[in-house]
Design a protein around this nucleic acid. Structure first.
Lengths: 120, 120
DNA sequence: CAGGATCCCCTCCGATACTG
DNA sequence: CAGTATCGGAGGGGATCCTG
């Protein structure tokens, strides 16, 4: 079991670099989830994203925009952010990931605290 | 549509910080996938992870170990890394994420190159 | 309200050199 | 073979101040 690893398995455009696994910055995932139910305003986003500064949130949003995941709209001096269809297509995979986390975060925390695997 | 956002939606242990979305460092995801088919040796991992230096790979592996996703075994001077059951449980969500990326990377690249949304 | 401009720190990552 | 030590650059993220 275990043939040699393909030396080229991560060459070129292996999705590892594009996939939602490690996509974007610290806030990107949370922003996407905030937009799940419809367009939101900048200041509205800052509420659940406790502590994020304007600069950092702006940068995160600009990147999501540049990746075609979020659309920024100015309408009568009103700025709104919304998911594009592409951004919306991410919600599924993200929910799968979050479900995994909800199911396993206790094990993760146990491991991080060094709670002993008795057979060690 | 779009009730006010819950100000506490990312407080405490909302999985956003633990979930595979943005979990680990640059190489973590690739390492996990490399271990999919069974235990691998350090030098074996370095092959597909082109360019990773020993220091960085070591750090990545140590973290995966600390999170209980990977187990390091020394047997007769032979070092091996393998997925724990917890690490193995990540393969599903990761495959979902990668499938998303495989399906949408062209759109991502298009967006990144500023290929115009005509209605702008 | 929705940012932009600065400053600063910290971590990530790579390169190089060295070791049991 | 499987690392560790050290250096250095780049970027992420927060704090603070300023603006149309």
């Amino acid at each position: 079991m275990a043939a040699p690893l393909d030396p080229e398995m991560f060459d070129e455009l292996c999705p590892s670099d594009l996939s939602p696994i490690r996509f974007g910055d610290k806030w990107a995932g949370m922003v996407v989830r905030c937009l799940e139910d419809g367009p939101r305003r900048f200041s509205e986003l800052r509420v659940p994203l406790r502590g994020v500064t304007a600069k950092v949130l702006t940068r995160s949003l600009r990147r999501l925009e540049a990746d075609g995941l979020v659309r920024r709209t100015v309408l009568a001096g009103r700025v709104e952010y919304a998911l594009t269809p592409l951004g919306r297509s991410l919600l599924g995979p993200m929910e799968v990931a979050c479900a995994w986390a909800r199911e396993h975060w206790e094990e993760l925390l146990d491991a991080r605290e060094g709670v002993g695997t008795a057979a060690d």
